[in-house]
Amino acid sequence: MLQSIHNPSEETRDLRQRLSSCFNLIEGFLLPEPGEQVRVNETFDGSIPDIGEHFRNHIKDFVEFVLHVPLNIRDTKRICSNEVSGEELKTYIKEFVEMFQGDQLPEPPTILEAMETMAENKAFNDAVWLYQRNMEEIFTTDNDGNINVVEKDFFMERHNTYLQQAMDLYRNRTSLMVLDRDRSGELRENILEISGRFEQTVNTLLQNQHDKIRLKLLVVGALGLAGIGIGVGVTEGIAAAPAITEFVSGMTSEQIITSITAFTTALLNRR
Rank of each mutant, 00 (worst) to 15 (best):
N7K: 14
E11K: 02
E11S: 04
L15N: 04
S21I: 13
L31W: 01
L31M: 08
L31G: 00
L31S: 06
R39S: 10
E42W: 13
E42R: 15
S47G: 05
V63G: 02
F65D: 06
L67W: 07
V69G: 11
N72A: 14
I73F: 09
R74P: 00
K77C: 09
K77W: 09
I79S: 02
C80Q: 04
C80R: 01
S85L: 05
K94Q: 11
P106H: 02
E113L: 09
E113C: 08
F124Q: 02
D126W: 08
E136C: 09
E137R: 11
F139G: 04
T140R: 12
D144K: 15
N146C: 08
N148W: 02
K152E: 15
L163V: 01
Q164K: 15
Q164F: 04
Y170F: 03
Y170R: 03
M177N: 02
V178Y: 02
R183G: 02
R183Y: 06
G185R: 07
L187T: 01
L187F: 00
E189T: 10
I191G: 01
T204F: 11
K212P: 05
K212M: 14
G221T: 07
L225R: 14
A226E: 00
G231E: 03
A239W: 13
A240M: 13
A243V: 15
I244V: 07
E246A: 11
G250A: 07
G250F: 12
T258S: 15
T261H: 11
A262G: 13
F263G: 01
R271G: 09
R271T: 06
